[in-house]
Amino acid sequence: MAITAVIFDAFGTTLRIGTRTHPYRQLLREGAMQGRRPLPGDLHHLMKANISLREAADTLGIWTSPARMAEIEGALAREIDSIALYPETLEAISELQGHGIAIAVCSNLAAPYGPAVKALMPKHTAFALSYELGVTKPDPFLYMKACHELGVIPGKPEEEAPRVVMVGDSPKCDRDGLWRWGSGVFTLIAGA
């Protein structure tokens, strides 16, 4: 059975953040100073919403002064500007595409990171991003959407169907949703 498509996770697999400023954590700390306790689902919620950092503050009911919001937005801009591909990413994707293998990126990320991720990835890359789809990995919908964008319907190991491989760095996010889906997508966990 030949591999017809590879789905990559973004951060930690194909891309890295060089300068971590944690702008969303800064925003949540502002809320904590106002008495708003961070909730376990806050970051998860922000990765499902197609909103800016300012809109995130409004959504979470966090008020910041204009000067403080500008500082946090500056931190976000620095973090986004530091996003880079791992050195081997382009070579690996180019090699795969040269063999006719379709490429997608399936990732949990907040909306402001999306344009940078898309701009850095090679042409003909499909995307299934949490903030655009309103769900986060390990929800099987993200993997189904990535396969749909690639034009493949993966089959079970015993079937004569296209093979899709998911390459990621998180067993929970990059493997467990596939098992829930019960698809013919196989996962390679980087560093495992």
Rank of each mutant, 00 (worst) to 15 (best):
G151S: 04
G100M: 05
Y86F: 13
L178K: 01
S183R: 07
I101C: 05
E160Y: 12
C173F: 11
P122I: 00
V152L: 08
V135H: 13
A119N: 15
V152P: 09
M121A: 05
G182T: 01
F141W: 13
V135T: 13
E159P: 11
L178H: 00
K172C: 00
L85D: 12
T187H: 09
L133K: 06
C147W: 13
L90Y: 07
E95Q: 13
G134C: 02
P112K: 05
A104C: 08
I153Q: 13
V117W: 06
M166C: 09
S183K: 07
S107N: 14
K172H: 15
A146E: 07
V117L: 15
F141P: 00
C173H: 12
S82W: 07
H124Q: 15
G182D: 00
E149T: 03
A116I: 10
I103L: 09
R78V: 12
T125W: 03
Y113T: 02
N108A: 08
A128N: 05
P87K: 01
I80M: 05
L120H: 00
L150T: 03
R175E: 11
R78Q: 15
A110R: 06
E88A: 15
V185G: 06
P87F: 10
V105S: 11
E79D: 00
A111W: 09
P162G: 11
T89E: 02
M121H: 13
K172A: 14
N108W: 09
G100K: 12
L85A: 14
G155D: 06
T125E: 03
G155F: 09
P171L: 08
Y131D: 09
N108F: 03
M166F: 11
E79P: 06
A146M: 05
S183N: 08
D174W: 03
H148K: 13
W181Q: 05
Y113R: 04
V165I: 09
E88Q: 13
L129P: 10
F127Q: 00
E159L: 02
I93M: 13
V135I: 10
K172M: 12
P115A: 09
K118R: 14
A84L: 12
E160R: 12
P171F: 15
A84E: 07
S82C: 01
V165S: 11
A146D: 04
H99E: 13
D139A: 06
M121N: 06
F186Y: 14
G114N: 10
P115F: 08
K123Q: 14
D176Y: 15
P154Y: 06
K118I: 11
K145L: 04
I93Y: 02
P112T: 11
P138F: 08
I93A: 02
V152Q: 01
I153M: 15
V164S: 03
M166K: 04
H148P: 07
M166T: 11
L96W: 05
A110C: 08
A119Y: 10
P87Y: 08
A146W: 04
A161D: 12
E91H: 10
